[in-house]
Structures are given as structure tokens and as C-alpha cells.
Amino acid sequence: MTPLLEIKNVSRYFGGLHAVEDFSGQVQRGERVGLIGPNGAGKTTLFNLITCFTPLSAGSVFFDDKDISSLKAYQVARLGIARTFQNLRVMPNLSVFDNVSIGALGALGHSPFSALLHHRNYAKDISRRTWDALEQAGLQGQASEVAANLSYGKRKYLEIARALALSPRLLILDEPAAGLNDTETAQLGEFVMKLSKEGLSILLVEHDMNFVMTLCERIMVMASGRKIADGTPQEISNDPVVLEAYLGSEEEEAA
């Protein structure tokens, strides 16, 4: 079987800055992959390239054997890649339900005429998808609240619920555990694990090493826009190149 996501020799230059350079990698179907690297390594830029937020300077990205490099962001989302953002981007003035319905609208399409003609089945489909995603994320009790009134932790789940309403095949999480305490991080890990068991492929960036090491089956390491390692958590934590570039020298580790 071909991988779900195949990144081939991808580069992105901002003027003279090589944010991502010749990066290749894969996400297999059903796999949980972590992407780690020091600040400024180009992780978020890579996410933006995969989701076609930022155009590629070179290389190509294949999703389910389809070249998505030249598509627009919304087309990539409709194909089944949903993402969350590093800095939470929920819509504060909309209710929780309305926020999540955005994902369902993306998946099912939005025509002004279906709104004008009041297509009942379409509205029911949107509603059902939204409720399903809310229930998956455990937010059904807060459906009618305005998103701005949710706690920070709940807003993280709201963002994931919105992505789930797209019924994606690949979920890309950009620092999902940032700003959460240990208990919340552990709960989030269980939640992501549950989604993965239901067949969703996961690609995530995270600085919480414990979170990544326990959750991910495979880890890719980036430094200065390049991939420097790719392997199981075990292999990565013993890789001298990674220790050098990312985790610090051995003396510091010991101290």
C-alpha cells in the first residue's frame, strides 16, 4: 500500500531564507507520526506547505496518490486533510455548535441555493456531522455556548472537533499540548490515541517530548529546514545526531 501522505523533496524559500529544504517524508495509513525540532526548524512552515497554505518553492506533496501541490487550501481540506493551529484559531463570536459546523460545511459544500431552498436533508447532514464531532470531543454539553466563554483547554478540543467535522483521513495537529498542564496533556494524549484507533492518521508537532514519545509510532526530526532523522521513538532518543542538534550534548542530558 502506498503511504497516505508522501512529501517529496519539498522546499520553501522566503527570499534568501531556506525555511524548508529538500524535505521528504511519509505518513502511512493509520499511523501516528510526530514532527519535532528546535524552534525555527520549519515545522509549521512544512505544515503550511502540506495544507497548501503556502505555495511550494520546489518538490511535491501526494495525498492518497494524488498530487496536491498545486491545489488551494480549501480543496486540500475537502480531500481529507484537516488541521489545527499553533495559536488557537476558534471563532470567538460564534457558538461552539456553529464553530464545529464550519468543518461540516467544508466537507459537504456550501451553496447559497441550498440555504434558500431550505434543503432539509443537507441541513440534517450538517447537523448530524456537527453533533458527531461534538460528541467525539466531549463538547456536546457546551454546544450552545459562545466559543469565547470556553476555557483554554476546551477551546483546544473545540478546534479538534471542528477538524473532525470535516471527516478527515489525516489530522495535522500543531502543538496540541501547548499551554496544557500535565493532567490535561495526558487526557489529550488519550483522546488522540482514541482517534487513531478509529483509523485516523495523525501528524503532529509538539515540544512536550514525553507526549510525543508515548503517543507517536514514528518521529521525524527537523533542524534548520532539513530532516535529520526519522525512526521510532526509541531510535530517535538514541540517535547522536538528534541529541546533538535538538536534545543538547550528553553532559547537559546527564545534568
Binding site: T51, F53, K72, A73, Y74, A77, R78, A82, R83, F85, R89, M91, P92, N93, L94, D98, S101, I102, G103, L105, G106, A107, H110, R162, A163, L166
Partner: peptide, 17 residues
């Protein structure tokens, strides 16, 4: 809701399809 999503955060709306 789709129109309001464009108002609130158009980039995020695009990433939701």
C-alpha cells in the same frame, strides 16, 4: 455560518474546506 467564518478568520475558514 460559512459567511461568518470568512469574517472571523478567513485563513482558518479555508483550512476547513
Amino acid at each position: 455560518n460559512a459567511l461568518r467564518a470568512v469574517r472571523e478568520d478567513d485563513q482558518c475558514a479555508a483550512s476547513m474546506g
